[in-house]
């Protein structure tokens, strides 16, 4: 019984759908992109040394970091809230394109 179950699982895993293959590729691509982002940052940090007479201006560094992070925060905020607004608008009951779920169709979702 257990053997059969294992075999079935193996068979399932071997039969990856096209969608799963694409997903794996995207995941791999994102891993590469992340590494590509981390390596230059680390290199830049390690390269930061002492140049005599040249000092960083903490006002500039801190405020620039703040503005960069705020840009990211607002972009993410806009995308997330935009997605939520679209979801609510698209899947509202009164939308002409709305389709009943299989539960609603079967009458299992009625009060």
């Amino acid at each position: 019984m257990l053997k059969l179950k294992i075999l079935k699982t193996l068979k399932y895993n071997l039969k990856a759908t096209t969608e799963q293959l694409v997903m794996r590729k995207i995941f791999g691509l994102l891993c590469i992109l992340t590494i590509l982002l981390v390596i230059p940052t680390v290199q830049y940090v390690l390269a930061a040394g002492d140049a005599p007479g040249e000092y960083i201006d903490r006002r500039v560094e801190i405020w620039n970091l703040f503005f960069r992070l705020m840009t990211v925060a607002f972009v993410i905020g806009a995308v997330v809230s935009g997605t939520l607004i679209w979801l609510v608008w698209r899947f509202r009951e009164s939308n002409p394109k709305a389709k009943p779920t299989k539960y609603e169709e079967a009458g299992e979702w009625q009060k």
Partner: peptide, 27 residues
């Protein structure tokens, strides 16, 4: 997965940037 990837990448970027600036101003 794309969504998770983008979020993770952004968090890594935010962390790396902050760490870098903190390191610079602590030196």
């Amino acid at each position: 997965w794309v969504y998770i990837g983008v979020v993770v990448a952004l968090l890594v970027w935010v962390g790396a940037e902050s760490w870098n600036v903190e390191r610079l101003i602590d030196h």
